[in-house]
């Protein structure tokens, strides 16, 4: 209802994908500092408190901008979620089970390995070798991240998606190992 305030339209709110919102190039090899510096500057610029209390339109715009900036920062500050987001920009949504655009099914060899590891978990727990078992899974998780990174660098979204799906399986197993550790102590 209020007319557009002139002061608030001096710069347009950040828009587009998460990288564009933060004014960053859409690439994986950003440092945490780069992401943080971009975030802090924009968060300050678009903080709702910088708008006078009577300018409702500008107030709303700065709140929307702040929300977008926060969401973008949360998605991009962590290297793994940043990789997952790059894959999403490439057309594969890892959170979806859609057979065409969702997370790709893991290979049979991978699933067989996963079943065997799961079966090995109870042996490791009983045999007192949980720490070594966990180390192996941790290494596998890191290898999957490295493979996804290499694939993204080559612009191979399907291969990156496959590696990130594997990473999620490993992460899930790590979470279960940690649950086991907590319940057994």
């Amino acid at each position: 209802m209020a007319a557009e305030s002139r002061s608030a339209s001096k710069s347009s709110p950040p828009s587009g994908d998460h990288f564009a919102v933060l004014g960053l190039a859409a690439r994986h090899d950003l440092t945490r500092d780069e992401v943080e510096v971009a975030y802090l500057a924009l968060a300050k610029q678009w903080h709702p408190d910088r708008v006078g209390p009577d300018d409702l339109a500008a107030k709303r715009r700065s709140m929307e901008a702040s929300a977008a900036i926060n969401v973008a920062y949360r998605a991009l500050r962590d290297p793994v979620t940043r990789l997952e987001y790059l894959v999403k920009l490439g057309g594969v949504d890892l959170d979806s089970s859609d057979p065409k655009t969702g997370a790709p099914a893991p290979t049979q060899a991978f699933l067989v390995d996963m079943i065997e590891r799961r079966e090995g978990l109870s042996d490791a727990r009983q045999g007192g070798t949980l720490a070594g078992f966990r180390g192996e899974v941790e290494d596998a998780e890191e290898e999957a991240v490295d493979a996804a990174l290499a694939a993204i660098t080559e612009g191979d979204t399907p291969a990156a998606a496959q590696s990130l799906v594997q990473r999620r399986y490993w992460q899930r197993l790590l979470d279960e190992i940690d649950d086991t550790e907590h319940t057994s102590t």
Partner: peptide
């Protein structure tokens, strides 16, 4: 038969 749901990590 061994199958997996990639989005949730079930096997």
């Amino acid at each position: 038969g061994i199958v997996g749901a990639p989005a949730c990590g079930d096997v």
